[in-house]
Each structure stands twice: as C-alpha cells, then as structure tokens.
Nucleic acid binder design. Structure first.
Lengths: 186, 186, 186, 186
DNA sequence: CATGAATGAGATTTCATTCAT
DNA sequence: GATGAATGAAATCTCATTCAT
C-alpha cells in the first residue's frame, strides 16, 4: 500500500471515531506510519484531505451501485436494486458509510463543487422524474422523493447495524422495508 | 434577559451558523455582551454549554409537542398531532431545530446521559408499541418505526424550508406526506 | 512596565539582532517573560507586531526631531537642526534606529498605510520646496533632495558608530559633514 | 544554459520579488525547471546559494566597472567613470542591483568572508586615499568618503528609476548629481 | 549527475480555561 | 457575581534538506 492510501485509511478511521475536529493531522500521520509533513505532500490542507476522502468514498459507493444496477425496463426493479445495493455496500463498509453521513451533515459539504454533487444526484433524479411521468410514482417534487428514499436508506442502515441480525434476517428486513417505502411513494 | 439567557441565545446563533468547532467561547461571550469569564460561571466547560443547550431546546420541543397533544383514544390522531406539532415547531424555530439536528449528528450525543435520552423517547415508543399490539401499525420493531417517523419529520422539514411555500401550502404538504407515512407503517 | 511594553522591548532587541525572519514569536514571548499567547493578545499577527513597532519608533524619532526644531525663519538652521537631532537620536537609540532602517529596506514597508508615511515625509518635503522656491537650494526635484539628505544621515550614522569617537569628535564630524551636504545642495 | 545558471536566474528573480525568507528553495527549483534536490547538488545550503549569488553579481558589477575604467592619470575622471558605470550597470541590471542592495541590508552580509569584501573595496579605498594625499579630496577618513560615494550611487539609482526618464535625461541627471557629489568631497 | 518523495523540526496562531481584582 | 488579561497546550502547515533510485 502506498503512503497516500495509508493516509486515507488512517484518516477514515480516525475521523469516524473522533470527528473531523477531534482528529489532529499529526495523529493521522502517526496512525498511517508516515511523517507529519508527508500528509501535506498529498493533501495541501486538512480540509482538502477531508473533501478528497468524501469524493473518494462517495465515488466508490456510486460506482458500486451502478455496477450492480442492470439497465432494466422495469423502473421499480431499477430503483429497488439501487436502494438495496446502497444498503449492502453500507453494511459491508460501515466506516466509509458513516464517514459519508458525517460529511453530509458537516459544513464541508458546502465546499464541494456543485458539479461533482450534481453529477452524482442527477441520474437518480432523472429516473424518479421518469417514474412520475409514467404515473408509477405519485405526483410529487422529484427532490422530495429522492430525499425520502435516501433518508430511508439511512434509517435502514441504522436499524440493521444496531441489531446484530444474521445476513438472512438483514435481507428480509431490507426487502420488507423497501416494499413499505415503495408503497408510500407509489 | 439575564446573562445566562444572553449566553444561550448567542451560543445558539453562533453554533448553528459556524458549527461547534467553528465557534470560540470568546465569540459567544462577545455576541452575548458579557465578559469572557462570565460564560464559565454558568457553564463549567464549552462541552457542558453545548450539552445544556441541547437539553434545553430538546425539552422545549418535547414540551411543546406534549402541550399540543390531547390525550386521545384515537392513536392515529395522537401520532399525527405529535408529528405535525413537531414540524410546526421546527418551522417556527428553525435555528433551534437545526441546532438539535446538528447535535444529533455530532459526537456530543454520546455525552448525554442515557437516562435523559430515554425519558424523551420512551413515551413515543410506548405509544407505538400500543399501536402495534392493537394491530394498527404493522408488526415491526417499535424502534424502527420511531426511527422512520423521526427521519420523515426531518425530511419534511428540509423540504418545506428549502421551497418557500405559503403557510397554507406548507400545511397541505405536511398533511399529504403524513398520510403517506401513515400508509407506509399501517 | 506593562506586558505590552515588555513585548515591544523584547521584539526590538531580537529583531535587530536576528532579523524579522530569524526571530520566532515564541522567542519574543520568552525574552519578554510572558506566555506565548499573550503576545497575540496585543498584536494579532507577527506582521502587525513588526509594523506597530515601526510606527512606534518612527513616531518617537519624528516627535523628538520636531520637539528639538525651533520654528525658525532661517531655513538652513531649521534643516540643520533636523538633520543633527535625527543623528543625535540615532546615536542615543542605535537599536531603534537600526530597526527603522531594517524596516525601510524590508517588504513590510509596503504594508504601512501610505497616509502614515506621507504624514511623516510631507513637512520635510514642504520645507525643501520652500527653500528651492527661495533659491536657497538648487533647482531639483524636492524628493531627490530629501533622498540625498536622509541617505546622508544614514551614512553619518554608520560612520560615527563604526569608529568609537568621543562625543566632542562626533559633533565635530557631524557639523563638518552637514556643511558638506549643504554645500552640495545649495 | 546549464542547470546551475537556470537555478541562479530563478533564484535571483524570486529573491528580489519575494525576499530571501519569502522564497522557498522548492519554488526556486520549480521556477528553474529542475528537481528539488538538484539545487542542493550545486549549493550545499540555501544560505550558500544566497551568498554565492551575491558574490556572483557583485563580481559582475566590479568586473563591469573595472572594464569600463581606463587607467587614467586624472583621478576625478577615474572616479567619475567608476560612479557612472556603476550607475549604468545598475540601470541595465535592476534586478541584480536590487539583489545586491537587499543582501547588503540583510544579516547574510555578516557571513561573507571579510577577505572577499575587502578585495572588492580596497582598490577604491586606495584611489580615494591617493586623491586625499594629492589634496584633491578634502582631508577625511577614506572610508567615510567611500560610504558617501556608494550611498550617493544608490540614491541616484532610486531616483532615476522612480521617475521614468529618457536615456538622455538620465545621463544629464547623473552628470549633474555627480558634479554635486564631487563638489561636496573636494 | 538528477530526481522528487519523504522527513521532522519548528513557526505561527488559536482558544478553552483560570484567577486576581 | 462579573471581569478580562493571561496562560500554554495543541493544532495546522512550511520548508530546508536528505537519500534511495
């Protein structure tokens, strides 16, 4: 593993455990096993590190979801696969997922270029809009629907990880709650 | 307004605008118009101030909701009133509500005694459990239902405040979305 | 002596001995016998400290010169008194004078508000212009004359301090060289 | 141009624009288009680079002046030619000249071996002493005369470059001011 | 010779907290 | 109770210099 990756791993772990502010850059370097200054060769500032981490892991999630989403005529199936694969990724990568959540509710989100954020959100909004036009989803603002779905994903995640469920039970809960969500918006 | 209240108001405003870490205690004192040291007469540490603020405003919300909830035989009506009055309070007190959200997603939440958190949540869980026993709400863990409801409230809040809706339109959206939520869990 | 003055004294000494860059703020605090942070209560940044020092000592010099310059019909006498009292001040306050020189040849000079610089220079330029109009000083740009005079003062200072002359010999040299300067520009 | 020269050019430019302290060695390497470490192959330390630059350009000036100074029986002519050619070199090489000035007023000057400084100054001092013995220059310490002359050169340089004079006007001013200087010391 | 990643000492600055008045 | 000057630990970031390739 090269030093950049060592730093990213160390930063992820410490930020999630102690928060952005509670984590000194020197602790990250120490945890990564590199010198203090090395961190700043890869990331000009602590802020840049935090934002780079977000983009890094968010891309990983987006990429995972799109890899697992077959292009499908059935919109419900498509959305379901996306929700489920988000959740599975979150369950398999809890630290990364919590980092993303932490970032979303922090002031740093305002420092990410709008372009980057849009590029991740737009495909989903487009899909929702299509579903609304086809009368599949109730007539509502697409961004409200998106908000409801992503929050639901977060709820599921919290619930599933707070109970120590077996993989089978996890899948069952997720299936059930997705159907509830779908009933709600259709 | 006595100095304690001046400090609380100033802290609320600054914490919401600049975050916990982005707000120095000296700025709070300045904004409150009191001396640097005075803050520490009322709150032993900055952390204690933050936690006291959370308990203060959370109590205000809980108190408002319970004041507006008539003891009612109809469980749906009871829950609906609670959800709606939470939302109305949030819309009328956006700064306080955002403070509460900010606190919930911060590491400080771990410093609040479990007792205090339980005391606020238990009545709601009890109500949900009752509704499940009566077959009104689908058979699910009560805490998942609670999670779904509170997150929904937060979603609605985000949506209602992001669009500048008229009071009438706000009420309409809230009514509609509550019915959707209710359909989902029943 | 209050802490502000202690800091000023310590900073003066260290800056002159080691240069602006060669002097760490922590060394200044140490030399002044105050805590690290105390320095930054009085001066927001190291730059502000350096600039404040300049204005402080330059004012002291200007004030000294004007206190010692009798309003005099005879322009030569006036200028001579100014030059001589500048020199005497420099000889009595070599550290402060060297600080001023150091500052003048540093990039910090660009950070001093033009107003402040003008206020110090203008009276002298006006006097020179008057002398030129009256035909006392050769027709030349007033700022060139000013430049020549101030540089001469600096030369004298360097010379007088490099040799360890007696007070009497000092005065003699200064008198002679001023006459040379005066011959040059008249 | 070989790498050593590239480094020298880059360093000159950056030191004059940003000061010694304001210029990181990495910036110099970057500007020169060489690797970070390459700089240290040619100059053991940053200080050594700065001092080498000074000796380099000062030699260039000295060499230029002596090349333009015909051995001449007439001492006034000799000195005049030296002063004028110094000035012309300064006007043609403002960056190098400003570097030399910057160096003279920096603590680095103390790090140059006295031998080197003497070797540059002594011929001039000898000439001045000869002029004093012949009664051409007033009886004064030779080093004071030298100080006066070099400072005058610096004054002229400042003046000539601050006004945007034509070449012709430049020469005229220089001629006039030299005569003034000469009157002063003779 | 040339490279540039890595180093780590050190510099400036912030800020929660104390305490004499 | 109220004050605010003083504290000093700690945080971020810079940069001259080294050395394995």
């Amino acid at each position: 593993m090269d030093k950049r990756d060592l730093i990213i791993s160390a930063a992820l772990k410490l930020f999630v455990n102690n928060g952005f502010h509670g984590t000194a850059t020197s602790k990250i370097a120490q945890e990564a096993g590199v010198a203090n200054g090395t961190l700043f060769q890869y990331f000009k500032t602590k802020d840049e590190l935090i934002i780079a981490l977000y983009i890094h892991f968010k891309d990983e999630l987006v990429e995972y979801v799109s890899r697992n989403t077959a292009e499908n005529a059935d919109i419900k199936e498509t959305i379901k696969t996306q929700v489920l694969s988000s959740l599975f990724w979150a369950i398999d990568n809890p630290t990364k997922f919590r980092f993303i959540q932490q970032f979303h509710t922090s002031p740093y989100i305002g420092q990410v270029e709008q372009d980057i954020l849009n590029k991740q959100v737009e495909p989903h909004l487009a899909l929702i809009q299509k579903a609304i036009k086809q009368g599949i989803i109730k007539p509502m603002p697409a961004d409200l629907v998106y908000l409801l779905i992503t929050n639901q994903v977060f709820c599921f995640y919290l619930f599933v990880t707070s109970k120590k469920l077996s993989k089978a039970k996890q899948h069952e809960t997720i299936e059930t709650t997705f159907e509830m969500l779908w009933d709600m918006i259709t």
